[in-house]
């Protein structure tokens, strides 16, 4: 589906630009460079305004992410329950720093600021799977399961 076709239904909706960008990203996995011009045209905005919105929100990505995105909660409740050590262990396990994507494009590691699982900390989101009381092994298992499901 063309980007304009994804975007157009949201013109005129409340907060439509954000919802349209979410839809593009859901379809393409990221926001391809032409998104800015197409969205600007559709919403009667400047490209700078669209770019400003894209760059403001952490959810929007202008580059493809890894096949699997592992998001580790970096906020206080998870810190209190060993989240910093967990992050270090996961970084070591996948030989990646937080915020990086593996060279193969298999996996992206990134921080997230609260998943609302603070009573089951530390928490992570592996693909679309929530992991409470996480440890490095459970995260590795979830990644393996995710890879298997996609294969």
């Amino acid at each position: 589906m063309k980007i304009a076709e994804i975007i157009n239904p949201y013109v005129g909706e409340t907060g439509g630009l954000i919802t349209a960008l979410q839809a593009v990203q859901a379809a393409q996995g990221f926001l391809p460079p032409e998104t800015e011009a197409v969205a600007a045209e559709a919403f009667n905005l400047t490209k700078a305004e669209v770019k400003g919105v894209i760059s403001f929100y952490a959810d929007f990505h202008r580059e493809p992410q890894g096949e699997i995105v592992v998001r580790l909660c970096a906020a206080e409740a998870c810190q209190a329950a060993g989240g910093r050590d967990l992050a270090a262990a996961v970084e070591k396990k996948f030989a990646l720093k937080s915020g990086e994507t593996s060279a193969s494009g298999d996996l992206t590691l990134e921080p997230v600021y609260c998943l609302g699982l603070c009573s089951a900390a530390p928490a992570a989101l592996v693909g679309d799977k929530l992991v409470g009381r996480a440890d490095a092994q459970r995260i590795e298992d979830a990644v393996a399961r995710h890879a298997k499901e996609r294969a």
């Binding site: 206080e76 409740a77 209190a80 329950a81 009573s119």
Partner: peptide, 12 residues
Amino acid sequence: FQIAGNVKHGGL
């Protein structure tokens, strides 16, 4: 109240 972090009986 939401009891969280390093807690034995966490929850709401």
